[in-house]
């Protein structure tokens, strides 16, 4: 058995001790996880990003324009001192401005326009009723009515809003069910590791 498997097995068991109650063994494993993850991210960011995209091309290939992002990046550290904290607003402004400019049209298209277009597809196609499309249409309209707060939810308006809440509950239930399934899968995966690789009880 290699050292990696032994360490992973011991740390898995240490994390599982939390199921009894919070304890120093769990705390130790948790701290190791956080420390290793941050260390790993730092190393990967340094080698794959800063070295490959900034320092090597700037100092190796003489791509002078890279001084601009380098300078903007350094200005971020201005936040560390009171006197220079204003400097950090410039790179933050660049990030927010460019980020919003890129994100708004993309999100509007993917999350609103295309979804809207798919929602209003014909309910009757080739002479027959498309039940799925009908459910989607009724679900979207009734849920939107539930979130329309400028009119009192009484009468047929209120009943439609109520129907919207049922659609919402079905969605929450499905999402919760999937989440439970996801967490069970994670636990089963760790159990498989413990029983096969670590304890070698099963093949």
């Amino acid at each position: 058995m290699d050292i990696g498997t032994i360490v992973a097995g011991i740390l898995t068991l240490a994390i599982l001790t939390f199921l009894y109650r919070d304890n120093p063994i769990y705390k130790m494993a948790e701290s190791i996880l956080i420390g290793v993850a941050i260390g790993y991210i730092l190393v990967i960011t340094w080698t794959n990003s800063l070295m490959a995209l900034l320092f090597k091309p700037l100092f190796g290939a003489g791509e002078g324009w890279l001084l601009v992002p380098l300078l903007l990046g350094l200005m971020m550290f201005g936040r560390l001192f009171k006197k220079t904290s204003l400097l950090s607003r410039i790179p933050i402004g660049v990030l927010i401005g460019s980020g919003a400019g890129v994100a708004i049209p993309a999100m509007l298209e993917a999350r609103t326009l295309r979804q809207l277009s798919a929602t209003v597809s014909p309910v009757i196609a080739d002479g027959s009723l498309d039940i799925s499309m009908l459910v989607i249409l009724v679900g979207v309209l009734s849920t939107l009515i539930y979130f329309y707060f400028s009119r009192e939810q009484v009468g047929w308006w209120g009943k439609t809003a109520k129907l919207g809440t049922y659609f919402l509950m079905i969605f929450f239930g499905t999402t919760f069910g999937y989440t439970v399934m996801s967490r069970m899968s994670t636990f089963i995966g760790r159990m498989e590791f413990l029983l096969t690789d670590f304890l070698r009880i099963i093949n």
């Binding site: 277009s117 798919a118 969605f171 999937y178 996801s182």
Partner: peptide, 15 residues
């Protein structure tokens, strides 16, 4: 991951 299936279903349904 299973927890994300309901998030992506609308993207699948809309093509």
């Amino acid at each position: 991951a299973a927890a994300m299936v309901t998030t992506y279903d609308p993207y699948l349904a809309s093509g």
